[in-house]
Computed example of a mutant assay.
Amino acid sequence: MAMVFDDRTDAGRKLAERLGEYRNKQDVLVLGLPRGGVPVAYEVAEHLGAPLDVFLVRKLGAPGNEEFALGAIATGGVRVINNYALRQMGVSTEALAAVAAREQRELERRESLYRGDEAEPDIAGKVVILVDDGLATGATMRAAVLAVKVKKPQKVVVAVPTGSAEACHILNAEADEVLCLDVPTHFGGVGAWYRDFAQTSDEEVLDLLNRARQRMAA
């Protein structure tokens, strides 16, 4: 029977229980994908005693059907395009460029808002655990994995509470380790597996990041 989580906090705690091998290790870094992945990642980082940061990725939604991912962009200029989806939706190169430009502006806005004066985390040589609230197409997480790999980590772990079988399979080819806590037979969408799937606000992301930074400083 498929798992249904109360909310992202509940999902993060359940996910963290399966990542015990990384607890209290000096070289572990947890990166949440804003916004929805951050409350999940916060619980993982708390449980593991690891620092928490964000990794900015934006889905490139199809014009008129924003939830349908044509690809994604990530910090560092990484761009992942699903050419099959592009042909299927009949999206022109010009239309895709307009979507990418808009999402790039939003990525830069969030980077500035969430990071402020904080330096980007040092990823080189680290075990990086990338966390989101779920995987539908996997495009967003795939962009994150490719962007992180450029920074020469020791290992890239993808950890999500729920995901489609196809997305989890795709990520297995990209990341060193993939933990999809639950893979429902009939996925539907990420929100279907949460009782409370309210949108995460910028304020909530900032609050969780500040709390995590204070914990590490202490």
Rank of each mutant, 00 (worst) to 15 (best):
E17L: 03
A192W: 06
G61M: 04
T200F: 09
T185K: 13
E66Q: 09
L208V: 09
V148I: 03
M89G: 11
I81Y: 14
R23F: 13
A101H: 13
A62D: 02
T185Y: 13
A119L: 12
G189N: 13
A100Y: 11
A74V: 06
L48S: 05
R213A: 01
E111A: 12
V30I: 11
D6F: 09
M3W: 11
H47F: 12
L29T: 01
E67H: 09
R87H: 05
L146D: 12
A69T: 12
R58T: 12
L130A: 06
I123Q: 08
R211L: 09
E174D: 08
R110Q: 14
A218Q: 07
L52I: 03
A98M: 15
F68N: 08
H169G: 12
L209A: 02
E21A: 06
G61A: 08
Q214A: 07
I73S: 02
A147T: 05
L206V: 11
P161K: 00
L208H: 02
V178E: 04
L113S: 14
E94M: 14
E108Y: 11
A69H: 07
G71F: 04
I129R: 02
G138Y: 06
A45G: 02
G20K: 13
A212M: 05
D132L: 00
G12L: 06
D6Q: 12
A100E: 15
E43N: 12
V183W: 10
E21Q: 15
R213M: 00
T137P: 03
L56K: 10
P184G: 14
E111W: 11
H47T: 09
L107C: 11
L52C: 00
E111V: 07
A16F: 13
G191Q: 10
A95S: 15
R87S: 05
A218G: 13
R102M: 13
M3F: 06
L209H: 00
E166A: 12
A159V: 03
N83H: 14
A45D: 01
M141A: 03
Y22I: 08
G12Q: 01
A192Q: 11
L181A: 08
V44H: 05
F55C: 03
R195L: 09
L171F: 06
Q104I: 03
E118S: 15
R142H: 08
L209S: 00
A175S: 04
G71N: 03
L181M: 08
V127Y: 13
L113D: 15
L113C: 14
E111R: 11
L15K: 01
L208N: 01
G32P: 03
L209R: 03
T9K: 12
V183P: 01
D182E: 10
D202H: 07
D182T: 04
V145C: 08
L96K: 09
L209I: 02
A62H: 07
E108W: 12
R115C: 06
L31P: 01
T162E: 09
A62E: 08
A101W: 15
